[in-house]
């Protein structure tokens, strides 16, 4: 049986590339989508050489929501599995003073991914099958002074995925919410992250491939983050507001 096509949105991200390679290794054809998609031609060749699966490359801008319907229609084939690795963090200090930038962060992490998933969801539901994998973040579990612009958008995306899962459960469309803690990628390159809590992109990819097969609903990457967030969510607000974390 031939494996279903996997669409990877935000394909230039480290996590996305690891996800594409993992699915390709299992024999899935791959659709890579990103802005400045010319740069993906190397990845196309690399994945084809390594795993002998067909790979196509597509231009995609999450913020250009008006183009999303046409983007889906133009795909050579409606994918079986779609993974969004789209995200944009910016720097909190700038996000606080530059409201336009803050809005860009909000739109990149919530509006854009939710828009493309809405289009895909309708088509998947029409077909009666498919899997949507949204990479959100533990940052969305509680707003913190150090990261709340990004965090609030991720919170929106997480809630969106949860609602979408609820809506599509009857249509046999599976929605997986991925909540990584820290991951060593371009996004976090300049941050000093604790080694024990920081996953490699490949770990996130492995966890996603497994969770898709097992039809899991919500996963944390590095499980310990489930516990950490449980604690963080339960700190009373009057204490939390004075904490620096």
């Amino acid at each position: 049986m031939s494996k279903g096509v996997v669409l990877v949105l935000g394909a230039r991200s480290d996590i996305a590339r690891a996800v594409a390679l993992r699915f390709a290794a299992k024999g899935h054809p791959i659709q890579l989508a990103a802005r400045q998609s010319e740069s993906l031609s190397k990845d196309k060749t690399d994945i084809e050489l390594r795993h002998k699966v067909p790979v196509t490359v597509h231009e995609f801008d999450a913020l250009d929501v008006a183009s999303h319907a046409a983007f889906v229609d133009a795909l050579p084939e409606l994918p079986r599995i779609a993974v969004s690795a789209i995200g944009f963090m910016g720097a909190q200090a700038e996000n606080e003073t530059d409201v336009e930038l803050a809005i860009r962060v909000m739109r990149s992490n919530y509006e854009g991914p939710a828009s493309i998933f809405s289009h895909l969801a309708t088509r998947f539901a029409g077909r009666g099958s498919g899997t949507l994998v949204g990479i959100s973040s533990v940052a969305g579990e509680r707003g913190r002074a150090t990261n709340y612009i990004y965090g609030s958008a991720k919170a929106g995306f997480t809630a969106f995925l949860s609602g979408l899962r609820n809506r599509l459960a009857e249509d046999d469309v599976h929605v997986l919410t991925v909540l990584p803690g820290f991951v060593a990628t371009r996004m976090t390159e300049d941050m000093d992250l604790p080694e024990r809590l920081t996953a490699k992109p490949e770990e996130v990819a492995d966890a996603i491939v497994k969770a898709v097969a097992a039809k899991r609903n919500v996963i944390h990457v590095r499980r310990i983050w489930w516990l950490i967030m449980l604690i963080i969510r339960n700190i009373p607000e009057r204490i939390f507001k004075r904490m620096k974390i």
Binding site: D14, K42, D43, T45, D46, L49, R50
Partner: peptide
């Protein structure tokens, strides 16, 4: 590690 593409064979 980020220079890890196979380019041609």
């Amino acid at each position: 590690r980020r220079f890890d593409r196979m380019l041609s064979f």
